[in-house]
């Protein structure tokens, strides 16, 4: 069974440095992904810009602070703000990360890995259901990069994320670069990861650059996507179909044209990898 999630084509992350270019030129782009927190807590210029951009492009919301795996439970005020933005923006997709980002009342501003245990699965499944009930729509969880593993993990990462998605009824945002990074850092074959994920769970791909620190790969979202990650992307396209794909570039952000070039490369790969070429396909979403 292939993915039933909306097929949006290829998008890029909406970043402050590109606001002016996007609004002045309305460049060709299938959709934009916003970082939810940058807009849900702001009633000023960011919201004004978002309203303008929504007139021209479909929007996908991607959060970084849901902290779905936090043993402290979910932050109800956060959920209320998230829901208010969702209700206003009506995004095509909503996602966050399979991780935790706060503990003991402190925000850690990072995507910290969870041990792959039954205890973590039960907690995350319960909390995903809470979120989905509250926002009244399904979410997707993204696999994160990590730099160590837990000795008491009971299963590999692909089994952990699949079990959670199946039991909680949520989707998977498959970050192809994070699979590549973790495959190097934790010494597994990235194809094993990709081939273990049931296609119907995958609603979105992320593609990004990373940095090589010799003994580990670091998920920096800097620079162009490397060739090996493009190859993995093609493997993923074959397995999962025409899944909405996002180009992430978050540090040393280049001129918009460079992001567009990366997006065009992804579109080209969709074209040559899949039977239904990108150009002839009808996208599922149009600006509201």
């Amino acid at each position: 069974m292939k993915s039933e999630w909306p097929k949006l084509g290829v998008g890029v992350g909406l970043r402050t440095v590109h606001y002016e270019h996007v609004l002045n030129h309305i460049p060709e782009m299938d959709w934009f992904e916003i970082v939810s927190e940058n807009f849900m807590d702001s009633g000023g210029r960011p919201r004004y810009i978002l309203d303008k951009i929504r007139e021209h492009y479909p929007i996908v919301m991607h959060g970084v602070s849901l902290s779905i795996g936090s043993a402290d439970g979910l932050d109800q005020e956060y959920l209320e703000r998230l829901k208010a933005l969702i209700d206003e923006v009506d995004p095509q997709l909503v996602s966050d990360h399979l991780c935790f980002s706060n503990a003991g009342g402190d925000q850690l501003h990072d995507l910290l890995p969870l041990p792959h245990t039954d205890e973590a699965i039960r907690l995350v499944v319960k909390q995903v259901k809470q979120v989905q009930d509250f926002i009244e729509r399904p979410i997707m969880l993204e696999n994160v990069s990590s730099y160590f593993s837990f000795k008491h993990s009971e299963m590999p990462e692909w089994e952990f994320i699949t079990t959670i998605a199946e039991e909680a009824g949520c989707g998977i945002l498959l970050d192809i670069n994070n699979i590549y990074v973790n495959a190097f850092n934790h010494k597994f074959d990235p194809l094993t990861f990709i081939n273990a994920i049931p296609p119907h769970l995958v609603g979105q791909f992320h593609l990004a650059g990373h940095s090589d620190h010799d003994t580990y790969l670091f998920d920096t979202h800097v620079g162009p996507i490397i060739e090996d990650v493009w190859k993995l992307y093609q493997v993923a396209l074959k397995r999962f179909g025409c899944v909405s794909t996002l180009i992430e570039w978050d540090s040393h952000i280049p001129p918009f044209q460079e992001l567009q070039d990366e997006a065009n490369r992804a579109k080209k790969l969709m074209n040559i990898t899949l039977d239904n070429p990108y150009d002839q396909r009808r996208l599922d979403a149009h600006p509201s």
Binding site: A103, E119, L123, H152
Partner: peptide, 12 residues
């Protein structure tokens, strides 16, 4: 075996 809470507090 450490609990999830203990692990998270130690990581914090």
């Amino acid at each position: 075996t450490p609990t999830l809470r203990d692990i998270q507090l130690a990581m914090r």
